[in-house]
């Protein structure tokens, strides 16, 4: 059996699978997104599934962008976070189905992104290929009077804007 304390409730009783799962999810919720540390990989919707099978814990995650250079870091961080609970046998899998969408970023994380100065993504939706960008709101003053100054930013997931109302430059999340 796994020798970690995570298997025990506080009173020393063996914990239920549900309790173990919530412990693991809570640990993963502490793993920051390496490029936007105000949100976690769970906030971002990157952790898709946690399974416990005997002594083995399997975590399934999905990459945000296929060429994201932080994937190795994220994979390692997931493994480290679960191991830190005392689990010896950790498997980290990746999946592309369904493809990650910014619609999975939770409401609380959207607000933290906004406070951090990054405009949260507009609903991505499905549909036709368009040649125009979707509307974005200034994270500081809330105005829609914004100009896209660069379609790409410091990371694959963001673009650059300037607000016409408060004149502040800011980063905005792409809607993917």
């Amino acid at each position: 059996m796994v020798d970690g304390q995570w298997l025990m409730e506080k009173d020393g009783e063996p914990s239920t699978i549900d309790h173990q799962l919530s412990t693991i999810w809570a640990a993963l919720a502490q793993v920051p997104d390496p490029e936007i540390p105000v949100v976690s990989i769970v906030d971002m919707g990157m952790v898709r599934d946690v399974q416990i099978d005997g002594e083995r814990v399997s975590v399934t995650f999905t990459p945000t962008f296929s060429g994201c250079p932080a994937l190795h870091v994220i994979r390692q961080s997931i493994e480290d976070a679960v191991r830190a609970l005392g689990v010896q046998d950790v498997e980290v899998r990746s999946t592309l189905t369904p493809p990650w969408t910014t619609d999975w970023i939770n409401a609380d994380a959207r607000e933290r992104l906004r406070q951090y100065g990054i405009a949260p993504p507009a609903p991505a939706g499905e549909g036709l290929i368009t040649l125009e960008a979707e509307p974005t709101r200034c994270p500081r003053c809330g105005s829609f009077d914004v100009n896209l100054t660069a379609s790409f930013g410091s990371t694959l997931c963001k673009r650059l804007y300037v607000c016409g109302s408060c004149k502040e430059p800011f980063e905005g999340f792409k809607s993917v």
Binding site: G67, T97, T130, S151, F152, R159
Partner: peptide
């Protein structure tokens, strides 16, 4: 699966 993933990224290239 791969096509659905890549398509979401490609639309930004095309707009740009």
């Amino acid at each position: 699966e791969v096509a659905q993933k890549a398509l979401r990224e490609e639309k930004f290239h095309l707009q740009h």
